[in-house]
Design a protein around this nucleic acid. Structure first.
Length: 423
RNA sequence: GGAGAGAUGGCCGAGUAGGUCGAAGGCGCUCGCCUGCUAAGCGAGUAUACUGGGAAACCGGUAUCGAGGGUUCGAAUCCCUCUCUCUCCGCCA
């Protein structure tokens, strides 16, 4: 959420920067609504001040029969105040609802552009493997090795689900452990295992709601939402808290399954593991001091890259352009891994800084020192990595001409020493 | 699922026959004094949001004692609903 006062005082600049996301103005109607609210509010508070003053006077008088007239006057005034309160509440809700649907300001370092075609490659690591045989896509490899079963998963649940079997299930589990061990052991993150369902407030705190409800799986009675990413429970952990300066930066890593409706993506990536309704992810989340936010994004991105490097999977780092960054993000780096089976780079991690956008929504603050007023922290998060897509990358990059798949060196300890998956 | 207890400021904790309570007291913290170190002592200060004025320092208003409604001229205090926490019983991985 953007600061209402900031929008008011910098309207043109804010409007202009938001427009770099594409589409028309996001601030239509803001000024009128804001003006209306403040005008009413001033009138209303004037009445309340008067009521408080007279009520104090009444309190001082022992014999209430002497102040019958004032009591009657105040009765009428209270009625008026009540009506205004009602009207004001509506305006507040309207304004709040409005602000919740305004996306974050793109960071000045976010490249300008209209679509993913305008994203900028920042760096690349590793040489895309040249296989001396016809590379197969991962779903063919997975099915022929008997480690991925899409058909039976469709029977159990439906399209966009999978059953991992045998070495495949173990490989997924090995990746999760490998990533968590790396981030906790080498990169200084604290491991969390949060709830996989959260309430509406949490979804609003990180920006999924109110705008993107159709992307979520929702439970009723009680109303919970299945998390689309661990970012939601982990970021909301410190919702409505005031942290100490010395606590920052806070770094958490968490494995969770992620649940996404993938509404509007019908026809896209229908085959294989790339786009599932349920997938596993190890997430990295940081709460940082505003002055450290840029550096911490670089660090977190590097932490995610490290996973790919240790697995020896070639990738490139893309800076997303203003038209392609997410609703809550100010700046985003995507890590794209090379997939020989499909001859393309695919997103395997998305690392974003949010400035104080999420912190303001979720009211996550800190004090510079014990004397200082609370300020909003900055939040940063990224996948470290999407586990299913990592498995895809391994299958496609490590496939052999005989149909088997070699296990990357770094994972073998997690696979009980297994060096190769074959039929 | 059944029975009971509770939710107050950064923390602990008073306050329930409605008004002088944004809220005692303590701790913590900040500034100053004092003490040749440390500890102790003394004095002052120390919530947040919105909003009006001001370049700013700052000054004023309103709201907030789990959340939302109600009663009242006036509610932390009374009534209703909800959420959460704790204890006991049942059930359960």
């Amino acid at each position: 959420m953007l600061d209402m006062k900031f929008i008011r005082e910098n309207f043109e600049i804010v409007d202009q920067r938001l427009r770099t996301r594409g589409g028309s103005s996001y601030l239509e109607g803001f000024r009128e609504l804001d003006e209306k609210r403040r005008t009413l509010m001033q009138a209303n508070e004037l009445l309340k001040a008067e009521r408080n003053r007279v009520s104090d006077e009444i309190a001082k008088v022992k014999d209430k029969s002497l102040v019958q007239q004032q009591i009657l006057d105040m009765r009428a005034m209270s009625q008026k105040i009540k009506e205004q309160d009602e009207e004001l509440k509506q305006l507040d809700e309207e304004l709040q609802g409005f602000l919740l649907t305004v996306p974050n300001l793109p960071d000045p370092t976010t490249p300008l552009g209209a679509s993913e075609n305008d994203n900028v490659q920042v760096r690349a690591w590793g040489e895309p493997r040249q296989l001396n045989f016809a590379a197969k896509p991962h779903w063919e490899i997975g099915e022929s090795l008997g480690i991925l079963d899409f058909e039976r998963a469709a029977k159990l649940t439906g399209a966009r689900f999978v059953i991992y079997r045998g070495a495949g299930a173990r490989l997924e589990r090995a990746l999760i452990n490998f990533m968590l061990d790396l981030h906790t052991g080498e990169h200084g993150y604290e491991e969390l295992l949060p709830p996989f369902m959260v309430n509406r407030e949490s979804m609003t705190g990180t920006g999924q709601l109110p705008k993107f409800e159709e992307d979520l799986f929702k439970l009723t009675d009680p109303e919970f939402f299945l998390i689309p990413t661990a970012e939601v429970p982990v970021t909301n952990m410190h919702r409505s808290e005031i942290l100490k300066r010395g606590d920052l930066p806070i770094s958490y890593t968490a494995y969770t399954p992620c649940f996404r409706r993938e509404a509007g993506s019908y026809g896209k990536d229908t085959r294989g593991l790339i786009r599932q309704h349920q997938f596993n992810k190890v997430e990295l989340v940081k709460f940082v001091h505003p002055s450290e936010s840029a550096a911490e994004l670089e660090k977190l991105t590097g932490n995610a890259e490290k996973v790919l490097q240790l697995l020896e999977l070639p990738y490139r780092v893309m800076a997303l352009c203003s038209g392609d960054i997410g609703f809550s993000a100010a700046k985003t780096y995507d890590l794209e891994v090379w997939l020989p089976g499909q001859s393309c780079f695919r997103e395997i991690s998305s690392c974003s800084s949010f400035g104080d956008f999420q912190a303001r929504r979720a009211s996550i603050r800190f004090r510079e020192d014990d004397k200082a007023k609370p300020e909003f922290v900055h939040t940063i998060n990224g996948s470290g990595l999407a586990v299913g897509r990592t498995l895809v990358a391994i299958l496609e990059n490590y496939q052999q001409s005989d149909g088997s798949v070699v296990i990357p060196q770094a994972l073998r300890p997690y696979m009980g020493g297994l060096e190769r998956i074959s039929c």
